[in-house]
Simulated assay, not measured.
Amino acid sequence: MCIKKYFLTALCSVIAYGASAQSDITEKEIAAHISFLASKKMAGRFPGTRENKKTVGYLIKNFRKAGIKPFGISYTQEFSAKIRVKKGVTDTPVVKTQNVIGFIEGNDPVLKHEYIVLGAHYDHLGMGGPSSKKPDTVGIHLGADDNASGTAALLEIAEKLQANSKDLKRSILFIAFGAEEQGLLGSRYFVENPVVPLSSIKLMMNMDMVGRMNSEKHLYMGGAATFDGGMELMKGLGPQIGINPLVIAYDVGGSDHVSFFKKNISVLGFHTGGHPQYHTPEDDFAHINVPGEKLVCDYIYKAIVSVANREGAISFIPEKK
């Protein structure tokens, strides 16, 4: 290839995938992501809607801006979602929606064939419905904490990892799951139709409701004992960041990481706790603790780098009952 042609090819690559990944996670960008995703114009990000498509477009745009490539030729993995209805309703709609997948390839010639998955669901309840805590209320369920917060964290952590990608030995998949609120449908579809062999996924880390850190700076996580050294690692990172992690051995909870755990994949499920606004129209940006979410992002970033660069094997450890 001549030098001129090589230069043009490289330039096209930069334009296509961006070259502006920031080397740090910022409160400003966390707030901007949540404000957009949980705005009234996004109408609760319900699967199959125009607002769902806008959310997918927003995710892809930010992956590209950060220089994060798709896995393969497309960022999207399409699937059909059966929508939950009230008890007694027999007409159950099925809609098309998507998972959004970004990818950073590791640098170790052997370990790059192993993957860490960082995930968060981007959908919410739209105007309410049977999963609302106010099921008879028709109003936009904004979903700022659930789960615009996790989606914002996914974008920010991914951007910093891309900026420092030369330091990663294992590869990273970033997955924004669709239709979680309809029964973990996006993650269930992914583990039945994985883009890489499931055996090559060594850890799945999931963020669902990470925007309401309390004054004690608690961060809850389930599944730390599902991989060797997990309990010690997650406890040890707390003082470095300035938070108090509540590290739970198993009790993996009820979000998208459960789909991976059922396939014997090690998991960590992160959240900052429940609150009265959960699954109501009142789950809005005004309740978000942005500085607290930055601490969450910094903590998870360090955890990913540590696991991605571990020399030894990462082994799944089932719960002993």
Rank of each mutant, 00 (worst) to 15 (best):
L185S: 11
K166L: 07
K160N: 10
P135E: 02
H141T: 00
M127Y: 06
K133M: 11
N164F: 09
K166Y: 15
A153Q: 13
A158F: 04
D123A: 10
D136A: 02
Q182M: 12
L168Y: 05
I172M: 07
P135C: 02
L154A: 14
A176I: 09
R170C: 09
L184Q: 10
K166V: 10
E156K: 12
A163P: 02
G183W: 09
G150I: 11
H124G: 00
Q182R: 07
G150R: 11
Q182P: 03
H124P: 00
H124C: 01
F177T: 12
L142E: 06
G139R: 05
D167E: 12
A176V: 11
G129S: 08
H124K: 00
L161T: 05
E180S: 14
A176G: 12
S165G: 08
G186D: 15
L173S: 00
L155V: 09
A153R: 13
Q182W: 06
A152L: 10
M127K: 08
Q162V: 09
A163V: 06
A148G: 08
S171W: 01
K169D: 12
A152E: 11
A152W: 13
F177C: 13
D167I: 07
I140T: 01
G139T: 02
L184E: 08
G143D: 04
N147Q: 13
T151S: 13
H124Q: 01
D146Q: 06
E156D: 15
T151Y: 15
I157M: 03
F177K: 09
I140Y: 00
T151A: 12
I140V: 03
A163D: 06
G128L: 01
G143V: 04
M127T: 04
